[in-house]
Amino acid sequence: MAQLTNAKVKPPRRNSPEYREYLRLKLRAAPWWLYAIIAIAILTFITIFTNIPFQKAFLFIKAGLSVTITTTLIAFIFALVLGLLTGLGRISDNTFFKNLSTLYVELIRGIPMLVLIFFIAFVGIPGVVNGLKAFGIWLTEIGVSGIGGWLSAIKNEVPMNTRAVIALSTTYGAFLAEIFRAGIQSIGRGQMEAARSQGMSYWQAMRYIILPQAIRNVLPALGNDFISMLKDSSLVSVLAVRDITQIAKLYAGRTFQYQEAYITLAVLYLTMTILLSFLMKFIEKRIQKNEQR
């Protein structure tokens, strides 16, 4: 259906009655919402560059951009790995991995993200660190001093940026797991049977036959979650990580210029998400083209 609307129809001759109808349909189909957003962004950027208080706010807040972007990117890469493993676990025949994966997904899905971030940063990570240290001390006592000494020397102070990345990737790993699971299950049973009937092992069939098709199917969903993660990375400001949200908060608190700080902040997020969704549309179009081969 999408091809019908996208098809390049030759426009009728100007001033002919058909031309008016053609123009009317074309105007109706245009993405006005997008033009509105672009207009808002352009207006804001013009304001930022002409209006001194906005300019100051922008120059201050943009220092957090690199933290926001690197936190999101690194956390997303870890979440992809975690999500793929968990997704494979969810459909596994192995009782242990199946239950472990399901437990993880259900736990994460039942807790608000903000609470999870607090929990992982202030309960989960210190707990794991203390556990590892205790294990290291015990290992040293029973004589395995190599690994034991190394483990017991772990510093208590895990940097907040690292905690933020761990918290975000743990949370999103559960969401991505469901995407991967659905993607794998969307591939017909016949594909696995054909691969196995040729003597491929389960993992060979997964790697060469099932996953390439499944991942292609879920790319749009993964892109969506990447955009969501970029937005949700603002939550790590509660850990005092200096991302754009935290810095905007600091700036607003210090100067009392709430409008300048938060309008600039919102437009920064909007710009990034719109650029990303353009990129996604581009990738999706390329996939569609490939499928029409």
Binding site: Q191, A194, A195, P212, Q213
Partner: peptide, 10 residues
């Protein structure tokens, strides 16, 4: 050889 061919479409 299967009823629905089951070729690898990718």
């Amino acid at each position: 050889v299967f009823q629905h061919f089951n070729l690898y479409p990718h």
